[in-house]
C-alpha cells in the first residue's frame, strides 16, 4: 500500500453550531490516486470537501495532509499547506485576464519561478495559451474549468480537491474534464473529487466513497462500486434508506 496523502477521521462540520451537515465522515486518499466521493443530493458531499479545504467550520474530527494536521486551518493557508481547491462555480476571476488569473495564484511560489510555471500550465492546457490576454469571463464553460484547474495546479499541490468539476457542462466537456483529470493524475498529482455524475467519475476514479446523510457508508474500488446493487440503490436514491442502516433518522440534511 502506498503512502497516505489525505486522512480524514470522523469529520463533523456545518455552517451553524449544533446543525452538522457532515456527521462523522472518514476517508483516506493515497498517493497518485483519484478518489471520488459520491452520494445522493443533500448527502453533504460538497460541505464535506469544503470543510477539508477550510471553508466550512469543523466541529469534530481531524484532517491530516501528508501526516500534518490541517484541521480547520484558515482557507487562505491551504495552498501553502499543499491543498488546492477548485470550487464548483465562480472558480475564476472573470474580469481578469487568463494570465492574471494564473499569476494571482502564484503568491506562494518564488518570484522567479512563477513565469516558468505559468508557461508549464500553458503547455498542459494549450487552449488557455491561445487566450492568455482574454478576460477569463469570456472563456467557454470547459475552458473556465481548465483555467480553474490550472490555477490550482500551479502551486504544486500535494492534493487537488475538486467540487463537481463536470457540473453544468455539456456531455462533450464532461468527458474532456475527466480526461484532463486522468492526465493530471498521470503527472503524479493526487486527486479527490466530489461528483454527481457517478458513471463518468467512477470510470476515471480508482476508489470511491459513498456519503449518505453526512457519513461515509460505502467504500470500494471505483469500477466495482458501479455494479454494487446496494450502492446503486443508495446513490440513485430510489428507495429511502432505513434508519438502522445509516445510524440516523431521516432528517434530510442540506447540501
Amino acid at each position: 500500500m502506498s503512502e497516505t496523502v489525505l486522512d480524514v477521521r470522523d469529520l463533523e462540520a456545518g455552517y451553524e453550531p449544533g446543525v452538522p451537515i457532515v456527521r462523522g465522515a472518514s476517508i483516506t486518499v493515497r498517493k497518485s490516486e483519484i478518489v471520488v466521493v459520491l452520494g445522493p443530493n443533500g448527502a453533504g458531499k460538497s460541505s464535506f470537501i469544503k470543510a477539508i479545504a477550510g471553508l466550512v467550520p469543523i466541529t469534530r474530527g481531524t484532517v491530516l495532509l501528508d501526516g500534518k494536521d490541517i484541521t480547520a486551518a484558515p482557507a487562505h493557508t491551504m495552498v501553502r499547506l499543499g491543498l488546492a481547491f477548485v470550487p464548483q462555480t465562480e472558480n475564476i476571476f472573470p474580469l481578469m485576464s487568463v494570465e492574471d488569473n494564473l499569476r494571482v495564484a502564484c503568491g506562494i511560489l518564488e518570484r522567479r519561478e512563477a513565469p516558468a510555471r505559468i508557461e508549464e500550465m500553458y503547455a498542459m492546457f494549450p487552449d488557455l495559451a491561445r487566450q492568455r490576454r482574454a478576460a477569463a469571463g469570456n472563456l467557454s464553460g470547459g475552458q473556465r474549468q481548465m483555467l480553474a484547474v490550472a490555477r490550482a495546479l500551479i502551486v504544486h499541490p500535494k492534493l487537488l480537491v475538486l467540487d463537481e468539476p463536470s457540473a453544468g457542462l455539456s456531455p462533450k466537456f464532461v468527458s474532456m474534464v475527466f480526461e484532463m483529470l486522468a492526465g493530471i493524475r498521470k503527472a503524479g498529482v493526487t486527486i479527490l473529487l466530489v461528483e454527481q455524475n457517478a458513471k463518468a467519475a467512477l470510470a476515471t476514479g480508482d476508489r470511491a466513497y459513498v456519503l449518505v446523510e453526512g457519513k461515509d457508508s460505502h467504500e470500494g474500488v471505483a469500477s466495482e462500486l458501479w455494479n454494487d446493487p446496494v450502492v446503486a440503490e443508495l446513490y440513485l436514491g430510489q428507495r429511502p434508506l432505513s434508519a438502522e442502516k445509516t445510524g440516523h433518522a431521516e432528517k434530510g440534511g442540506a447540501a
Binding site: 479545504a53 471553508l55 484558515p74 482557507a75 487562505h76 493557508t77 491551504m78 495552498v79 501553502r80 481547491f85 470550487p87 465562480e90 472558480n91 475564476i92 476571476f93 472573470p94 474580469l95 481578469m96 492574471d100 499569476r103 494571482v104 495564484a105 502564484c106 503568491g107 506562494i108 490555477r151 502551486v155
Partner: peptide, 24 residues
C-alpha cells in the same frame, strides 16, 4: 504587482481570493 492583482481578485470574488491563497 502581485498586491494589485490580489486587490482586483478580492474585489471580484472574496471567497475565491481566499482559496487561491490571498491573505484577505
Amino acid at each position: 504587482t502581485q498586491i494589485g492583482r490580489s486587490m482586483q481578485a478580492l474585489s471580484q470574488n472574496a471567497a475565491l481570493a481566499r482559496i487561491v491563497g490571498i491573505d484577505v
